[in-house]
Amino acid sequence: MKAFSYERARSPQQAAAVVAANPEARFIAGGTNLIDLMKLQIEAPRHLVDVQDLDLHRIEAKEDGGLRIGALVSNTALATDERIRRDYGAVARAIMAGASGQLRNKATTAGNLLQRTRCPYFYDTAQRCNKRAPGSGCAAIEGFSRGLGVIGTSEHCIATYPGDMAVALRLFETVVETVDAEGAVRMIPLAEFHRLPGTTPERDTVLEQGEFITAVHLGPPPEGRQFYQKVRDRASYAFALVSVAALLRPDGTGRVAFGGVAPRPWRVEEAEELLPQGARAVTDRAFRDARPTAGNAFKLPLATRTLAYVMAQAKG
């Protein structure tokens, strides 16, 4: 961890201005991801703007029937909120399937969206990694890639977005609200929020330096039963090998997003249209352009079978 200076934000715009003006500055919310990365000098900010005092801890009803979730609402608070549990059950279940109780108490909604990949080479500073050290290469492609991405990847990076909550959020009309140094508000659909790596895997999202997340908006609750099925090698406290978030209606239509497979929550609308034809039709389409490694090709049949499991539960 490099020595850093520290201040507490007074307003979202002020925080944004400080971080925008200093490329070596970062926001810190719960700190559960950022501090780990700082200890290993994967991130080495020289200035931290602690945003925890900002008034962004509320979940508010919106006129359209949706919800506005403050950026600092903790994962625990979000997963236990009555409205979330009733109308957005997949989100509650996704959060509860992640991390541990202690971490969820500390982790925030915005921080969760921005958690970085769990690629093991990203975590070892002696290894080549384009995401951590742009241009150094990618050690994972030829290496141990069991947990890494099968689709949306590039020859520069095959890492996944590891989180759970964002996968479930993809089922709804979810929009990320940000503010910049000038106070300009931007509404970014979650579908466009996480970037595919292409030639610049060092950028995980479309956020600009200093752009500050103030809230996450959920559209009105849709019809249908909701599911979040997370598959992993141990029963708890592990990232997903594959996860499936699904919204399934009695007529066999619905929405599906996959986690653990791509640099962002993976939802393909054209694939969802095939839901009435069964799980395999959906995953064949959703993963049509998949480029797995020998070590992670099992994620494709696993995604199919996990979706089939969810669809069977919807019927049963």
Binding site: P120, S236, Y237
Partner: peptide
Amino acid sequence: LAVDAGAGFFVNHDLAGYEVPVHAD
């Protein structure tokens, strides 16, 4: 402990990558 057979080391060298049973198991 997963070996990177090219670089010659155990890749999953922390307790997030090297999974031991938790209570739920």
